[in-house]
Design a protein around this nucleic acid. Structure first.
Lengths: 215, 215
DNA sequence: TAGATTGTTAATCGATTAACAATC
DNA sequence: TAGATTGTTAATCGATTAACAATC
């Protein structure tokens, strides 16, 4: 463990997003038995410049070695440390439709630093149903569960029309971050972080980009 | 010296992403009976500056009106036109797990400009099973279906380990764009556009952001 | 009218890329 | 050594914000 704490400065958002890509790629490399990876190699494999990769990695507490690059084992540890995914982050998911269940049933969430503490749905028909090791709970239990389990993150996996009201409930229950899986942009108080994973919106982005190239 | 002015110029990526947010918000407003919306209002409701909103909307073929703002009906049309979602974009989805099915069964895909032409899975047990109006098809049928239905976009909804190989198959089959729903960053030839919707990665980003604020 | 809002230009801010001495 | 790669500084590039005359 590092006892010394050099002033951890805020990372730019694009850097954080690329770190998640480095992490996934380096996990593969390590799985394939690679002990070292160079910045030109990582860059090439992710469509970046080696300059960007080195700039990004300079934010971590890791030093590369000339002519060899970075040790994959250390790199994994440091990226996970930086992203706060070496600890287990407790999630609550609201919405037990296909999307909510897809996430709840993800095979290796724990391996990525997350654990689903509870899954909620407003449909009384669904409440009580088992989803993997979980049982769907009623919305009324939300606040109590969040407080008791100290859940920090809430996932919104309901139909678009209910998104904002679910967000409000999660905030009221005390989560500090929201992952929005719906199409609706949601608002939250300044004190709560919102990250979007709006699949339909990404599809629209893709449609634009593909069309643009044919013109 | 290029003297001709292109009717449509390439939009910066951040602008395209915000357009999807304007679209979703304005749809809500219109649904609520609002005929006009101003840039300060949109900005406030999405956490932007009004300056950014006006800059963004200046890329569209729409003029605002002093003291009133923009007509929501026209704004919707123009954003959809720009994003290429007024036409119907044909999708093929590979992977009939919860995530693939969640997308295939989305209630109003067509209302957002998309239609699922076919759903594939490599599991012979699943092939033939009905998912909404679709029937799961075997991977062997991929190329034929893409060509016959002229599918332009492919969605990767398989386990991470199979992601790249599915991407390769989709590219070989002839799609022009890929939506990556897996954790693995995927590579494609320069001629094929890739857009990520990596849910787990967004969760990692959220974990970082929440932790950063508590420090 | 007075005041709010637009469209656009210019200034600012931030992120990416280039360059290169140091290193192994 | 010769050559590849690092870490870092400086230059470039691009996106956001500020400012303001024109407009309704």
């Amino acid at each position: 463990m590092n006892t010394e704490k050099p002033a951890t400065k805020k990372l730019p958002r694009p850097v954080v997003q690329r770190l998640t890509r480095y992490l996934a790629r380096v996990q593969e490399l390590r799985h394939d038995g690679q002990d070292w990876v160079s910045s030109p190699f990582l860059a090439q494999s992710l469509g970046l410049t080696s300059s960007t990769v080195r700039q990004d990695l300079s934010h971590l507490k890791i030093r590369g070695v000339s002519k060899r690059g970075y040790e994959t084992r250390l790199l994994l540890d440091e990226i996970r440390e930086m992203l706060a995914t070496r600890m287990v982050n407790c999630l609550v998911i609201v919405g037990a439709g296909h999307l909510g269940c897809a996430l709840a049933l993800h095979g290796d969430l724990l391996g990525h630093g997350f654990e689903v503490c509870a899954l909620f749905d407003r449909d009384p028909e669904l409440v009580g149903t088992a989803v993997g090791p979980l049982r769907i709970r009623p919305m009324e239990a939300l606040e109590d569960v969040v407080k008791r389990q100290r859940a920090e993150l809430g996932v919104i996996a309901v139909p678009a029309g209910a998104a904002q009201s679910v967000a409000d409930k999660l905030v009221a229950a005390g989560v500090h971050g929201l992952l929005n899986l719906t199409y609706t942009p949601i608002r939250a108080p300044e004190s709560v972080t919102v990250v979007d994973a709006r699949i339909l919106a990404r599809l629209q982005e893709l449609a634009y980009l593909v069309r643009e190239r044919r013109t």
